[in-house]
Design a protein around this nucleic acid. Structure first.
Lengths: 266, 266
DNA sequence: AGTATCTGTCCTGTATATCATACATGCGTC
DNA sequence: GACGCATGTATGATATACAGGACAGATACT
């Protein structure tokens, strides 16, 4: 990092991307980072730790946090030092849900799907270019396969990712996938071309199954939810043990696709 | 447009506070106002309309909205002009709920309570000095008495308000209640002293019933939820027709208080 | 045609929000 | 007691985010 500084001032430089420096940052941006940080850590965090974690000046962090707490977007946690999300965010979130048929109905479908099948079921959407688990309902197996709502995962790691990108042209797909995204947790690398092929296939077949991508023990079945003909707005998916039989997988897939289709009517 | 201006150009008014001028406003504040405005209107709103509604310069509003959309806190609604809450807010809201036992369990209790009794049931909390319906579950009556989640109502209008302020001294209560709050929708005025008396009584009896305050047709039964001995963190309440018999009211009150007490253990 | 009212972008000056620094307090450990 | 490392507050300097207005394009009504 020091190299950059030693070199010289940073004039506008390259035509692309603004990375002026470490100088002043807009308050709003700082706030957005604070929220992201809290979301990533899923727990109350002290103001000092926040400032450190975001490379933000302490003084600014204090004022911003105070303002956010006053506004109700954040709340002081028990000991009066740490902060976490506040009621206002919950209220806004519920308002979003109320205004969003797809989400509201999708949550129900997912819940009943996992109750009926006993498997973990999820509703997934594209969220600023990333795959996001919007709602998940754990299965009834003794050892549950569960993942946190709001978790963001590289698109190429998932079956849903392949469906969510169906219909996009190569350029847009490339823009959404970084090199890191193509490397699986176990180190294997997915070729971009293979990924794009998969997307094409998924688009045609109307579903997608992946095995042992995110981890070695699970298989992922996904079906698209359309908001308009050809436009994939979300996916429903089932996460099952990788040794699930062909037959059962087929059955599950049928139920899954049925429910996803029902959601699409909207 | 003239009305809007007359409305908004409110000089300091009663409660002192800093209202230096109409000059520059912080971006973050503008954003907070945007969120509040959307929440108040419960629908997607065009950028121009937003700017007008908030007395904010158009140019600033455009940039802020763009940033918020990029961040995922807001989303463009269908026609590409209006904006409303975004998925991020939903995700943050869910994170808040996960991290908040009381809320999570309270929602369940409210749902089962309204299923058992057939009456509309609500979970209420204090939110930056105002009474807020955090979760509500409609009853099964042919004509439902329902109110929107997130709605904020003056404390003196409600039974829950009397419980939520239990334990606070007179000064703090006065600080939370404006003159306007003491005037009911039908024009009647509540005396501050009476209100404070009510709070004292509610505190002792451990419940509160009000009749025909917000409207002429409903009665409101409320019971406190404690987060620590003496500290009222929330209330559960039932909204029933005003002509509900004494007997039934008594029964409902018993069930309500039982459930509220169970929530309090935490 | 003209007029009016939208939307969205771009530019410039300046009021000010951000930042660095310093200070007060608390709470450990040596 | 002296030191280190926290948290929280206060202050002044300056880079910059905001306000305001000009601009181009759309839509609509006369």
């Amino acid at each position: 990092m020091q190299d950059a500084e030693t070199l010289a001032e940073q004039p506008p430089a390259g035509a692309d991307e603004e990375r002026p420096a470490n100088s002043r940052e807009k308050g709003l941006n700082r706030v957005l980072h604070i929220l992201e940080f809290l979301h990533a850590n899923q727990r109350a965090i002290g103001v000092g730790e926040l400032a450190k974690g975001l490379n933000a000046p302490r003084s600014t962090t204090y004022t911003l946090v105070r303002e956010l707490v006053e506004a109700g977007l954040l709340e002081m946690a028990g000991d009066g030092n740490r902060v976490y999300f506040g009621k206002k965010l919950y209220l806004y979130g519920m308002a979003y849900m109320r205004g969003n048929d797809l989400l509201r109905r999708g949550r129900q479908e997912v819940d009943t799907l996992s109750r009926e099948t006993g498997e973990t079921s999820e509703l997934c959407m594209l969220q600023s270019g990333r795959y996001t688990i919007v709602h998940s309902s754990p299965g009834t197996r003794p050892f549950r396969i569960s993942s946190a709502t709001g978790l963001q995962i590289p698109l190429p790691w998932t079956a849903s990712g392949r469906l969510l990108l169906a219909g996009l042209d190569r350029g847009r797909i490339e823009a959404m996938v970084t090199q890191d995204d193509l490397v699986l947790p176990d180190g294997r690398k997915i070729e971009l071309d293979d990924f794009i092929d998969d997307i094409g296939k998924a688009r045609v077949t109307g579903y997608c199954v992946t095995s042992g991508l995110v981890d070695a023990y699970t298989k992922c079945l996904a079906a698209p939810v359309f908001s308009a003909p050809g436009k994939v707005e979300a996916t429903m998916c089932l996460v099952v043990p990788i040794d699930t039989s062909e037959d059962r997988t087929g059955e599950l897939l049928t139920v899954l696709r049925e429910r996803a289709a029902r959601l699409s009517i909207s």
